[in-house]
Design a protein around this nucleic acid. Sequence first.
DNA 1: CAAATGATTGACACCGGTTTCCATAGAGGT
DNA 2: ACCTCTATGGAAACCGGTGTCAATCATTTG
Lengths: 337, 337
Amino acid sequence: MAKRTGQPTINDVARLAGVSKKTVSRVINRSPLLNEATREKVEAVIADLAYVPNPQARALALRRNFLLGMIYDNPNAQMVLNFQEGVLDAIGGSEFALVVRPVDRHSPDLFDDIRAFIEQQRLYGVMILPPLSENDALAALFTELGCNYVRMGSATLDDDAHLVQSNDRQAVRDAVDYLIAQGHQRIGLVQGPEGFRSATEREAGWRDAMTAAGLPTGPDMLARGNYTFDTGRAAGEQLLDGAERFTAIFASNDVMAAGVLHAARTRGLSVPQELSIVGFDDTAIAATIWPPLTTVRWPIRAMASSAALKLIHPEAAAEEKSLFLTEFVPRASVAGV
Amino acid sequence: MAKRTGQPTINDVARLAGVSKKTVSRVINRSPLLNEATREKVEAVIADLAYVPNPQARALALRRNFLLGMIYDNPNAQMVLNFQEGVLDAIGGSEFALVVRPVDRHSPDLFDDIRAFIEQQRLYGVMILPPLSENDALAALFTELGCNYVRMGSATLDDDAHLVQSNDRQAVRDAVDYLIAQGHQRIGLVQGPEGFRSATEREAGWRDAMTAAGLPTGPDMLARGNYTFDTGRAAGEQLLDGAERFTAIFASNDVMAAGVLHAARTRGLSVPQELSIVGFDDTAIAATIWPPLTTVRWPIRAMASSAALKLIHPEAAAEEKSLFLTEFVPRASVAGV
DNA sequence: CAAATGATTGACACCGGTTTCCATAGAGGT
DNA sequence: ACCTCTATGGAAACCGGTGTCAATCATTTG
């Protein structure tokens, strides 16, 4: 009669427990108006059958599914993976799952791709990683699509309900202050790409510190990269080949800092004796290269958990301002002058 | 009447096109027995409404969903991310989506976690990344759960339908042969963790080459790591602090090779002049460290695409043996003796 | 010209849950 | 003992698609 192929259904549970589907449904959804004895009886059958509600059927009936999306286009693998783990921390034992979608932010089809992704999957909510998160037109697209979203930002990009934020500007200021306290005067900056808030914020932090100390911030003090190793190396070469010598360089992320280190090596400069280098992110590469990189720990994993919770429990999280603080991580790539 | 909240349904399309929902369904599923004029009429309405079928409803009716799972526990972020991109290459414009699940392979709850994940989400199929893929009990669990799976392997772990394989043993043999051709005689090995097929295979490749050349492979020639930077460094220290000097070391993955490089540095050994180092994987770290690492490119992205296709079109892929060939990538971390 | 054939199409049940609405049973009040 | 009131459980509709099978229609054949 009841075919035993596949997993048990709510009907199987109801029949074996001698109750109606509705009662089983009430047990599953923890309805308060339910006889305790009935609940236990049903739960026993559920455990016995190892019954798990069909998520697709639930999604259909509830008109919402249990999929959290994550859209990224990031040269930094470790950051993305840390983010995924953070999301899993949040959705762990729940019925939610994480759907990932790498995209190419330079593709002309970017918006169409994302639109198709959202419309096809009808996600419960989406998390957008930097640098994509800094695109206001993209946020507008999600609003238009009626898709809940959270942006990971390094500055105030949106209202609190849609934002998980970090204090990049202050963090960089602290890091550069540290260099200044070590006696450094000519401190170069490897900027992030144009149009990226994280890049702008980190540059502002550098300017804050340098200006407060009366140090120069002219155009010869900085070079631009786009958060990749190669562009970091090129920026480092540009700075190191300039007329005046730097004693320290702050790079706007760890990968570019590794590029600067590379550039220093090819020029025969020893780090940190002749050049101090500071990065940003504290991803795995920071502790892996030689010398270990002084950097700023960006609490991406905790931020990811927070982002997921904002999507799952918007009512609880809407009020809460999600500002995550960074932490300065001194390692061996900085020396005093 | 028809509430315009949310996205249009198949009924909206049917009504506006003046046909039944079944006909619309036929259009969506490209049924061949359909009048061309009708098809065009319906397609016009679909385009007009920007109608997209509800995947949850489809999943329910078809008794299968369109979610591919990916289970991983890997210290190497770049590899996991490359894998994700490879899967996306395969499922790109289709209705499939990728659900990721990081797990902790040392957790006592590993199997329960994975079982709960599979049962809850009822995935269409799952891809298992190394080193988890090398666990036969885990494969048995998927079989028991009736969940289609593909394992990513460095050796023959399973039948062709469930396996995407690479030729690690031969690849390492070639790499060590290259070192031997450069005049190296004492070539150390940093093994991968015990019980991992990839580690066993790579070790076998090293033995093949050494034995064929009549070179020693005694217990003082190798040290074990577990694919992380720190264990790679420890293994490197163990080898370098041994009685006899090595001129080259092959590490079973890039991250451990970076650890060996680190160990060499702290001992004042210059690379590659005094010590040559070869890694395996060709992940981003290989080109990022200094000197750039000679390594073996492991075509993970293409393998991931193949794995996804095996799940989506098992009939097409079942016959095909998926053996992916590696490529030797000479960079600057090797010098002749 | 009627019947047979084949191509299209639609009515209806169903996937596995949830919700609405109602019937019923038991509790408490007078 | 009678009558509300509340808790509980069931029947049936529904979410948005798909499968089955019969009905319709045009065309070909005897």
